[in-house]
Design a protein around this nucleic acid. Structure first.
Lengths: 339, 339
DNA sequence: ACTGTCGTTGTAAGCGCTTACATTGGCGCA
DNA sequence: TGCGCCAATGTAAGCGCTTACAACGACAGT
């Protein structure tokens, strides 16, 4: 008993009494075929349960209709959300998504990019501008288009779709300073090779300068993503000699941890200390007190990135940078400094 | 000026003065080639910056080394976490991950499976057993192996790697009943076509029967994933004539919402009502009060699923079901019923 | 009636890789 | 020295699809 091979284009052609070219056209450019022939062909396609061989098609067209994304990790809700929107939009446009994760490791990102390219990704989505130059060399050599997201930087060489982390944090910091806070502190994700985190820190310092404060005096602690770490970081910041009255967190997860840290230490938020987040994940709307944070349009960003890449691939449209707006969400965790 | 085509196997072969077969062997089965030739070939590979053409390789081998996963949505942390582990393990084993999302829609899942298969997925990861039979027909016809996760059901036809949702909830419910609770209620994700949610409900009813309660009298509300919905659902359950003293939630997100709903209504947890979650996402360890919930080994599950699929593809090992253990995490949100 | 045009279909040449099979040459053994 | 064996390498036949180009036939214009 032979192993039933799945039917090929040729099988369909013979069965329908036409050439392979005609069958191919029915499938890919139906308008170029008479209605009668098309129906006949489509009928046999269904009858035989034919579905095109992926490898052969990829080889003939040099396209896979697959786009790759290398993100730090899906476990971080903000990446998951943006990626979900990205995938949904790709789907709508007839593309598939391949996902790889770099765990914030430089070498791993290189390897993942290599792998996605080797697996036939037509284009790539990347997070942030900072990475091993090998990656860009590779992409250029293979002519793989790529788009940077989660940040917007018109000065960067590569196109990006995202928001201005620095300006957003600057705006938020101004609001806090206007409330009268003068003792600030920052808890951030590890800064090395993370241009978003760096930009947010710079934004905060910008505002400090504007208000006549010395940015070099800003206490800074770095902790990886995680609620628990936020609590630890909070404790670290509050044990210094001059306690901050407002703590800026590089993301909401750290901020939620800080909120918890405050409760653990019996401190009132915002009575004793204000806490500010960044991202506006769902979580920040249910903490107690509600978290003041910067709202980032993750879904919109994912969607736009997908559209931009697909239009580039399909219509050769140039990949242009797009800036999205963030919004301050002033909630209960921010108040005037204690007197 | 010609567009520089990327070099092919043939280019490498000519340059190195060997045949294409030898080059191919250097890349795929290096031990079959003399060290001297291998070095010579590898040198030209690097010199030319050669990298194999994906389509051609896929066509020749009938493999893409890519595995697809269709999940409801990455925005749900439990799927994101399991998927992340799945991806990491696949990477370790030399495979790539394609992701599609069904948004809990039956037809969409069919389309996504079709699309992943058309895009050359060698195998598929699916969530739960319930789905359109077309999907299994398609997978069988194309001989695409698949593995069901997030549930374990030895009675199902298809192999699954996961945990017994029903037993886990039954165990939790027993604990609650032992504490003296007799007025229970359930808030669940929409039950239709969600065997995990259904199983959890059944587990709760099992325990009720065991304790002589009438399971048909159990108040049940269904709400989609979302903290906000948890608060709404909580309010709905607490406005009935006989108020429950313990509310079981189908997942932690709803439970956190319920916690918030309780605070909104000025009710004490667990003084006035106990709240129980399911999944043990990070969030549940930082709520106030800490959430009692069922811990699920999502990462372990993703990892095992990856290994099982890859071993099946590479070594033709049979796809066998694996049951993973859950654990009760009894925390502050559960207490004895109010007297 | 003849020719040119155009819309439809067929022919066949790749696309770049893997691999079964053929070939070669070096080595051990008689 | 000659033979056989085996490891190393080469030859070439696909894999299944797309698409440039050829062929064909119907139809309109003269």
């Amino acid at each position: 008993m032979m192993k039933a091979q799945s039917p090929t284009l040729n099988d369909v052609a013979m069965q329908a009494g036409v050439s392979t070219a005609t069958v191919s056209r029915c499938l890919n450019e139906p308008e170029k075929v008479t209605a009668k022939t098309r129906e006949k062909v489509m009928a046999t396609v269904t009858a035989l349960g034919y579905s095109p061989n992926f490898g052969a098609r990829a080889m003939a067209t040099q396209r896979t209709n697959t786009i790759g994304a290398v993100i730090p990790t899906m476990e971080n809700a903000i990446f998951a959300r943006g990626l979900q929107a990205f995938q949904e939009e790709l789907w709508r446009l007839g593309f598939n998504l391949m996902v790889a994760s770099s765990s914030y490791q430089r070498e791993l990102e290189v390897a993942q990019v290599r792998s996605l390219v080797a697996r036939g990704a037509d284009a790539l989505l990347l997070i942030g501008h900072i990475r091993d130059p090998q990656i860009y060399a590779l992409l250029d050599a293979q002519r793989i288009p790529s788009l940077v997201t989660w940040t917007y930087d018109p000065s960067a060489e590569r196109p990006s779709v995202g928001f201005d982390n620095r300006a957003a944090m600057r705006d938020m910091a101004r609001k806090v300073l206007e409330l009268g806070h003068r003792h600030l502190a920052m808890m951030t994700a590890p800064l090395a090779r993370n241009d978003r985190a760096q930009a947010r820190l710079l934004g905060l310092k910008d505002a400090m300068v504007q208000f006549g404060l010395n940015p070099d005096a800003l206490p800074i602690v770095e902790y990886p993503y995680g609620i628990e770490n936020g609590a630890i970081g909070f404790a670290a910041l509050m044990t210094g000699s001059t306690k901050p009255t407002a703590i800026f967190c590089g993301n909401d997860v750290l901020a939620v941890g800080a909120l918890r840290g405050a409760r653990d230490m019996g401190l009132d938020v915002p009575g004793d200390v204000s806490i500010i987040g960044f991202d506006d994940i769902e979580l920040s709307q249910v903490t107690y007190p509600l978290l003041t944070t910067v709202h980032v349009p993750h879904r919109d960003m994912g969607q736009r990135a997908a559209r931009a890449l697909v239009q580039h691939l399909n219509d050769d449209a140039p990949l242009e940078s797009q800036e999205l707006n963030t919004e301050l969400r002033l909630r209960a965790s921010l108040g005037p400094p204690p007197r």
